[in-house]
């Protein structure tokens, strides 16, 4: 499977800070995304999911490990070729307002990638930008000449998506693209991403903190906690029978729009420990209801418990 993967990440490590106050945001994460598939990456803030996304799209350099795109490790490319190769990996960010330059017109923002790479005249650029705006469901005649501040969050996010698609990327990294939006608008953007994925044959890495959002878009889901993967599997398996206690807590945390559902206690108690000083053994043990002595001593390896379903837990749900 990993042979034809468009994206493969091996043992990714990212450190922040200097000698004394070193914080490891990502500690040895490996996964692969086959072409035209979507991998959902789920975790709380501080889990290292956004950092992983930034390394995948080469916005940030990892401290260790490799990120292979279509079989090549991009970090080995010379600067000029890297700049060109990078256009195949685009990102959509969380904050719809901060991700657009407030002083530029919408049509120019969308046309900018073409302006950077040249090769087309201005008329053609504008035509293609207008087509792309149309493709993300906006009327170029109405919105093209506006500036981002005059638009709603959902509209800004559509423009971000349009801009990311202008260079015909193979991989789209979406970093919490709907977290800042109303539920009603969330659904619009999620549908849009699903449609565009089909239409342009995109491979996606979809980062979110909400499993329900990931479920609507992803084929497989990876769950991260404190810089490590705890579970990786097909989306259906993962929410029907989450094996890792942390995945189970994430499933429970999704608010269910049903007033008759009894209010359970909070799915997780306490706060995430500081990544500067992670717990020994299993990193989740301090908040885990099933933790035993061994969890503090030995770190559980990520093991395959069913075809394509990996878990890093000494006591996965099915064995309890």
């Amino acid at each position: 499977m990993s042979e034809q993967a468009l994206l493969s990440v091996e043992n990714l490590v990212v450190d922040y800070g200097r000698r004394h106050r070193r914080v490891q945001a990502v500690s040895g994460v490996s996964f692969a995304v086959p072409e035209r598939q979507t991998l959902g990456l789920v975790g709380e803030s501080g889990s290292g999911k956004s950092t992983t996304g930034r390394c995948v799209s080469f916005v940030q350099r990892p401290t260790g490990g490799t990120v292979r795109f279509a079989g090549t490790d991009l970090s080995t490319l010379p600067a000029r070729e890297l700049r060109r190769a990078r256009t195949k990996l685009q990102m959509v960010f969380q904050d719809p307002i901060s991700s657009l330059n407030p002083r530029r017109k919408v049509i120019d923002i969308v046309a900018e990638p073409l302006a950077i790479w040249g090769g087309v005249n201005r008329k053609e650029m504008m035509r293609r930008a207008a087509d792309m705006l149309e493709a993300v469901g906006m009327d170029p005649a109405v919105t093209g000449n506006r500036r981002p501040g005059e638009l709603s969050g959902g509209q800004c996010q559509r423009i971000s998506v349009a801009r990311a698609l202008m260079l015909e990327p193979a991989l789209l990294v979406c970093d919490e693209p709907v977290s800042a939006l109303d539920v009603s608008v969330q659904a619009q953007i999620l549908n849009l991403l699903t449609d565009l994925k089909e239409r342009y044959g995109l491979t996606m890495l979809f980062i979110a903190h909400d499993l329900a959002v990931v479920k609507a878009t992803s084929d497989r889901v990876a769950v991260m906690y404190l810089g490590k993967l705890c579970e990786l599997g097909p989306v259906e398996d993962l929410y029907l029978s989450p094996q890792h206690p942390y995945s189970a807590a994430l499933v429970d945390a999704v608010p269910v729009p049903d007033p008759r559902r009894p209010v359970a206690g909070p799915p997780l108690s306490g706060d995430m420990p500081s990544p500067a000083d992670p717990p020994s053994g299993c990193r989740f043990r301090t908040r885990c209801p099933f933790a035993q002595d061994i969890c503090a001593i030995e770190e559980p390896p990520l093991e395959e418990i069913a075809p394509g379903h990996l878990v890093a837990c000494h006591f996965p749900t099915s064995s309890r």
Partner: peptide, 23 residues
């Protein structure tokens, strides 16, 4: 419409959400 637009865990995978068009 608001109710339909909530992504649900028990929906079939890849199900289209019923978004409210416009704003």
């Amino acid at each position: 419409a608001l109710m339909r637009s909530i992504p649900r865990l028990d929906a079939p995978p890849g199900a289209r959400l019923a978004a409210i068009p416009g704003r």
